[in-house]
Every structure is written in C-alpha cells, then in structure tokens.
Simulated scan of single mutants.
Amino acid sequence: MREPVRVLVVDDDPLVRAALAMVLGGAVDLELVGEATDGDEVPAAVAASAPDVVLMDIRMPRTDGLTATELLQATPDAPEVIVLTTFDADDQVLRALRAGASGFLLKDTPPVAILEAVRRVAAGEPMLSPTVTRQLIAHVSAVRPAGPAEDRQTRARTRLDLLSDREREVALAVGRGLSNAQIGAELYLSVATVKAHVSRLLVKLDVANRVQIALLTHDADLV
C-alpha cells in the first residue's frame, strides 16, 4: 500500500463531498485527489487523478454508483471502490458488491470509521463484517423469488467445487470474515501461505476481491 492513499470522492451532494473532504483532510496518510458529481464523470476523474480508493455514492441522477462500479472493474488496474448509501439494506449495495466493490459505508458513519475503512480497503483487507454481509443478503433474498436464489446457490456451489479441500477451507474462513492472521492460526498455516491461497481463490473463482469470495460462500449457504 502506497502512502498517502489517494482517494476520489463521487457524490452528487456538495455537502457530502465537503464533509468527506474535511474528514480525509485530517489524515496525513490519506489524500483527496479529486471529486466527481455523478457516475458518468468517474472514468475521466479516475484517469486524471489515479486514485487508490473511490468513495462512490450509490444513488446519483444520471449514472448510479452500481453502473460506475461495473465500468471501473472492467478496466485494468481498477481502484478499490467503497459504495456510500443512506440505507444499510439497499439491494443496490449488494449488487455493487457483486460487481466488485470492496465494501460499503453508511453516510452517517463516524469519521474515524471512514478513515479506517479507506485504509483497510487500500491494503486489500475485507471491510464487511460477516454480520453485516448476512443481514444484507438476507434482506435482499427476502424480497426476491425463490427460484433465482436457488439457482444462485447451485451456481455458487458448482464454482466452489473447483477448489481443493484446503482452498475451500480458506474460502469458508474468508466468508466468516476472518483476517489472514486469524485464518493462519485456525488452519495452522503461515500468513504468507494464506495470502497465496487467497490469491489462487481470486483466480479460480473468477472474483475481484475478498468480499466477493465471502458473497460466494454465502450464496452457497455454507457459512
């Protein structure tokens, strides 16, 4: 992780942008390198500022944060994305996580927690707790027909069947929200070995980050 961590803020509300700029300005290891007012401005803003992390509003008038996240993840060396929302059970948040976002924050999150989230995501660490992930998935599943959910479970289990026994253990531990150090202690592996397993999981499961590994294990109903 390079320092300072470069952050781009994307939100159509000038007050939110100003508040986030003030929060980021108080951290010596973080740098606000740009702002955008809508999702359609994101590609140009990212190209101009080369951020490590994008704080992305989920609801914007022209191009929403979901679409902007999907477009970003399709580009080489895409920055990490944290979606911002006023709702903690927003189905668009779950869609953004599936599209490759590294986590989400409520807009009323305390400043210290926002700074810590940016640091963790920039370092490649998971940001969602297992409890938050389960609540989000449960909310969305409750308002969807059973058929698609069952299909999603079958697809998730088929993908996880590609893993070795050890890789599967690591994937399930990631799904429970454990850090690399915690996984190593539980499975009697070095942290370096855990990192190697996680890297292989990203390739074999064709996912962008640890959050998507966790979502896949939840889709499979294994954690």
Rank of each mutant, 00 (worst) to 15 (best):
E169S: 09
V46I: 14
V9F: 01
V42Y: 02
A185P: 05
H218N: 13
T158R: 15
A78C: 09
L72A: 08
E186Q: 15
D57Q: 07
V81C: 06
V81T: 10
E150H: 14
D11M: 04
A45V: 03
D151Q: 13
D11F: 05
R120I: 12
Q73G: 07
V143T: 11
Q182K: 13
D29F: 12
D52S: 11
A113E: 15
L162I: 14
P126E: 08
A171P: 00
D221L: 11
V170W: 06
V54N: 15
A45Y: 03
A171V: 03
A45D: 07
A171G: 02
R200M: 06
E116V: 14
S129Q: 12
E41Q: 15
R98A: 09
E3P: 01
L187E: 09
L216D: 03
F87E: 10
A185H: 10
A138I: 02
L160T: 03
V23A: 00
A185C: 04
F87R: 09
M60H: 09
T37C: 08
V7L: 11
L115H: 10
T193L: 02
L30F: 12
A214F: 01
G124F: 00
V223A: 12
D221A: 13
R62T: 11
D40Q: 12
R144F: 00
G34R: 09
S49Y: 08
S199F: 07
L71G: 13
G124V: 00
G26F: 04
R59N: 13
T85F: 00
A101C: 09
V10K: 04
P148D: 03
A21P: 02
R159M: 06
L202S: 02
G65R: 03
A208L: 06
G65S: 02
V194L: 06
S179N: 10
G65F: 01
G39Q: 14
T37I: 13
V46E: 11
L189T: 01
E125N: 06
L32H: 05
T37P: 03
P145V: 01
P126S: 15
E35P: 06
R168F: 08
V93Y: 06
S129I: 14
S141E: 14
L30K: 13
G65D: 00
V54P: 13
A138F: 02
L72W: 05
S164Y: 09
L15Q: 09
V33A: 05
M56V: 02
D91W: 03
T86D: 08
A18P: 02
Q212C: 09
M60C: 04
V7N: 07
L205I: 08
V191M: 12
D90E: 08
D219M: 01
L32N: 07
V132E: 09
L128Y: 14
A138L: 06
Q182E: 15
P51D: 07
K195D: 09
V5N: 06
G147Y: 12
A142I: 00
P14T: 00
N180E: 13
L72R: 08
S141G: 07
L15R: 05
S179M: 03
R2E: 14
L115D: 04
H197G: 08
G124P: 00
